[in-house]
Design a protein around this nucleic acid. Structure first.
Lengths: 137, 137
DNA sequence: TTAATATATAACCTAATTGGTTATATTATA
DNA sequence: TATAATATAACCAATTAGGTTATATATTAA
């Protein structure tokens, strides 16, 4: 399952992307705005930063800035960065198909089902999400 | 994630469906044929039986018989019977959408991604799987 | 220079889930 | 009546999810 942490990470990036480019926002503010535990925001921002999508400046007046064009970050990328590789089945994590005939027939089906799911998530960017939120106002 | 138990259940039904209609097979034999722990086969057959797909006769010369046309059982049905309702995200389990704007925008996307996945699993029946295995020989 | 504010990083914790095992009861046949 | 089979329930260890706690480090303003 896609974890809540991955969902939070998407929301955090969306919050950053819904302000003018270059805007610096504090973790605390993001947490308040989106009702996410502050500690989790901080924890997730560390992972997000690892991907190079944001950078942070410390001290008073410090905060987080979005570094990458949000139209170039899609949902799948964020999920995989936070949760690791996606697999709807244990089977899809192993490189080698197993020996059992039925199970091998299944592998192709799992893969197709998963790809159908992922293609939706690949088509939606953080920018799309930020705009969708704005139009809701 | 779709559990190994659900996958096992699919394999068990496929094994039953790959013999002439009405054939009685023991749990032990299914377990050996498909390399599944016997205890798990027994446990899963209890769930499968609940759905009315099979019936068992006890005693020596007893075993399990497939009751339903395997073309009428699809993968999604089996998974949901064993694992319960499917949800790629915690969010999709709650009937009510949450308040946060970003999260509500996400809900529709999760739902679409999940439906794309499920439609694949709905299209494949136990009969399809049993035939796929046969043609592999 | 020091207090306050903010990110950065790591370790820890509890509850639920997964993938199974164990134990026991029941039924039917030889 | 012994044996082979299903039926049912309880149990269990390892992993994961979701989050907290603690501490270090950098920056600014007074």
């Amino acid at each position: 399952m896609i974890t809540k942490k991955a969902e939070y990470a998407i929301i955090i990036l969306t919050e950053l992307a819904s302000h003018p480019p270059g805007t610096i926002i504090t973790s605390k503010r993001i947490a308040e705005q989106r009702s996410i535990p502050v500690n989790l925001v901080v924890q997730l921002l560390a992972v997000i930063k690892e991907a190079g999508w944001t950078s942070g400046t410390r001290g008073p007046a410090g905060g987080i800035r979005l570094n990458k064009d949000p139209s170039q970050i899609n949902m799948r990328q964020v999920i995989e960065k936070v949760d690791g590789p996606i697999g709807i089945t244990r089977c899809l994590f192993s490189k080698v198909p197993c020996q059992d005939k039925t199970r091998c027939s299944l592998r192709g089906i799992w893969a197709k089902a998963q790809q159908n799911m992922l293609s939706v998530l690949e088509e939606v960017s953080i920018k799309d999400l930020a705009e969708a939120v704005k139009t809701d106002y």
